[in-house]
Every structure is written in C-alpha cells, then in structure tokens.
Design a protein around this nucleic acid. Structure first.
Lengths: 228, 228
DNA sequence: CGGCTGCTTGACACATATGTGACACACGCT
DNA sequence: AGCGTGTGTCACATATGTGTCAAGCAGCCG
C-alpha cells in the first residue's frame, strides 16, 4: 500500500510541483486548495502524512493543525508545515501547534522529500526505503553515504541530491530545468549551465573508483542515470 | 509534440471554454466556427482529434464527419461528436456517423477531457504513451532511447524527433512541408530538401542494425514509416 | 533509348551543445 | 582572522549535429 499524502496548499503551481514529486517517489496524493477542503478530505480518508501550508484560505494552516491534533483518529498524524520565509515566531508557533516538521519556501524538492521520508519513517518505518541500489551504485539516505562496488564515495550536498534525484528514475532523461527545479529548488535562479558543472563533478566522483560513466548525456535534452 | 485538437463549434462561448480546458491540459487547439471552415482547416493540417458540433452552420456536423471518413488521410481520425440533447444523441448513434464517441451538451469539462484522453489512447497510443513500438522499432520518450530488435540505436536530436513524428501515424505519408512544420517548427526556414538529408540519416541509423528500410519514399509526395 | 524529374548521399563549412579548469565568493569551524 | 569545503559562473576547448550543395542515381514517359 502506497503512503497517502494530503497536500493542503492553495497555490496551484506549488501544489502541482509537490504532487508531481511525491507521485514520482511512489506516494499517492490528494490536493486540498483551502482549509475547509482539507478538513473535509481528512474526514473522508485519513492520510499517512499532511503537507500543510501556513497561509491557507478559509481556515489557516495553524488552525487545521490544531483540529488534526484534537481529533482522536488523527492525533498522531504526521504534519509538515510549509511556511513562507518569515519571522522565527511563525516557526515556533507552528511547532507549538504540533507540526512534526516545518519547511520554509522556497524549498528544494529533494530536501522536502527527505523530510517526508524522515517523518514517515518515524511513524511507519516499513513504508520508506532508506537504501537504494541501481547497478553498482548504492545510495543510503540515512547516512548520506554513497558507494560503488562497496567502495565509499564522498559527495558534496548538491552532488548527493543530484544523484538522489537521478536514482529515483534510472534511465529517465531530465532536462537542466527539471534538475534545477528538483534539486536546487523551484524558484532559485541559477544558470542552467551550472547543472553541467555539477554533473561533471558527480561523474568525476563516481568514476574515482573505476568503472565507466554512469551518467548519460542526451544532447539537447539533458542527462540520465544509466539504468539496468 | 502536443496533440492537436480541432474544435468545430459555432457557439463562441462553448468553443472558448473547450479551448481553455484543452490548452490547460497541454493540447494545441484551433477553432472552426462553421462546417466550411472546418473542412478548410482539415485540409491545411490534419489534427489528432476533432470535437465536432452536431449543429454546425453551412455544413452540418454529420456531413463533416462523413467527409472526414471518406478522405484517405483522415479516415482514421478520431472524432468526438457534441450534441445538444440526449434523445438526439440516441438517434445519432443509430445513424452510425462514424464518430468515435458522443458527448451531450451541457457537459462537464472534466468528463469531456476524460473522453478526449480515452479516445486518443485508443486510436493513437503513440500520442499518450511513453514507449511506442511499431514493427520492430521501439521509441521511448522518457529515456530518449531507440532500438530495433532489442539493439540500441543512437539518433541525433533531429532524427529522434523525426522518427517520433513518423511513429505517431505509421503508414501515413507526410510531405516535406508537413515534416518541416511538425519536426522543425513552423517558424524556422529551412530548405525542403533538408528533409531528404535527415530522412537519409535516419534510414542509415535504423538500418545500421540490419533489417530493411523502414521508411518508404513516395515519389513526389513525401515519406512514410512502414506501418503494420 | 534519351531526357526529364525527383531522390539519395558524401562532403563540408558552420552552428550549437557539452566538458572542464580556474576563480571568486560564501559559509561554518577553530 | 585564517582555514577548508563547497558553489556558481565564466571562458575556452571539444564534440556533435545541422543545413546546403552538387554530383550521381533511379524511376517514369514518350
């Protein structure tokens, strides 16, 4: 059974981005565009996790969170709060209401996915894979360790997220734009060519232990991890 | 390549509603306000699907549908008929106009979108599937991989798009102009002869793994992919 | 069999996309 | 401050793909 995630977020673009990335990682999703709708959907089917926007129309996120905590069947439901980058006070109050984690916008989707996994692991450990192997490359999300043929490889944070992103869908070609969205964050502005440099660094690191290039360049389309 | 939908509908409000919803779901659209106009547009560019109003000025929908069926290049073109009332719909069904599906007005747009997807999937799987096989040739859009009899083939971007275009309509003959529009884009100017060169390159690549020429030259008309 | 027309194909100059070392800057640590 | 690490950008080198031409073929018709 796939973990079911409720996305309570009014900005359609953000909601769709989340849906896309969550489904890509094998979650089932539903979107609630406002607080009322979120409450209705929570009554209909209790999800395994809620992504809750702080500023939600009709019923604000913090209020939704309180109600979740006060109902018996959702009292332990994991909640990740999404907040706009504002004062610390908001964060603290968010945590006081019982959110399990918070993420400030703009966020990199891989980072958010990592938080989702972390929170779910606490509640339903069996649902999330910690360790993924494709070909001779293994990525361990809990320890942030990467290895090829049993030999450890050190990666910087960006290269790690990049590999983590590729490894979700081995073989699939991602454009520079998709990689920027997924690995760097939806609205951070960096040159598309920067992706090339990081791919180059990732390649160098992965090939430092021998073996051939595990990343395929698809001219005028993007890059992909060579699948099996 | 986005699926192209022709909307033959005289009520401007309805036509615009359809256009809005279709474009939102990633289709390209054109509107024909009467039967004559629909026929003209069908000659100019064959769409992937037609939404056809029953009561169309000048040439009625049923007649347009008959003509679509009787012309070689549109004989298999999916048509969804839009009719005003349910009783009418029943009668029309009895008339066997050759439409692939019927929707009665007023319709829910989500329902219509679902029908559009369903019809396209049935008639033109190549438009909606990620991986398409025709004969012994397989094209995978997510991985940008092409193979013939399990053997990988490397194609440059243009050859890839060209093959992808052909594979949408196996057997159908495309003129150089159609190919330039569809593969290069309607706004770039390149010599029509350039198509020949790229077809040649595509042939060479596809035959590099043995097998015979999968592309047929139709003298003074164009090229087509040998279908099944 | 010409002669016409349209198609094929190798060559090539040019255009674009990608790979990569260097560098300046931003952090977090001590 | 001084250090180590990681990041994003640039400039330049390389690799790869593109469009055009022209010579040579191939089908078609009288």
């Amino acid at each position: 059974m796939k973990p079911f995630v409720l996305i309570a977020e009014d900005e359609k673009a953000v909601a769709e981005l989340l849906r896309y990335n969550l489904e890509r990682e094998g979650y089932e999703t539903a979107i609630a565009p406002d607080g009322d709708e979120a409450m209705i959907q929570l009554d209909e089917r209790v999800p395994d996790l809620v992504l809750l926007d702080w500023m939600l129309p009709k019923v604000p996120g913090i209020e939704v969170c309180r109600r979740i905590r006060s109902k018996a069947d959702t009292a332990n439901l994991p909640v990740i709060m999404l907040t706009a980058r504002t004062e610390e006070a908001d964060r603290i109050r968010g945590l006081d209401t019982g959110a399990d984690d918070y993420v400030t916008k703009p966020f990199s989707t891989t980072e958010l996915m990592a938080r989702v996994r972390a929170v779910l692991r606490r509640i339903r450990p069996a649902l999330v894979e910690d360790k993924v192997t494709v070909g001779d490359i293994t990525v361990d999300r809990t320890t942030h360790m990467v290895s090829r043929n049993q030999l450890d490889i050190h990666l910087g944070p960006t290269e790690f997220r990049l590999l983590d992103y590729f490894i979700q869908h081995p073989g699939r070609v991602f454009s520079r734009e998709q990689l920027l969205d997924g690995v760097w964050g939806s609205d951070v502005y960096v040159e598309a060519r920067t992706v090339d440099v990081h791919v180059g660094r990732l390649r160098k690191a992965l090939m430092s232990r021998g073996g051939d290039d595990p990343i395929r360049t698809v001219r005028s389309a993007g890059y992909s991890l060579r699948g099996d």
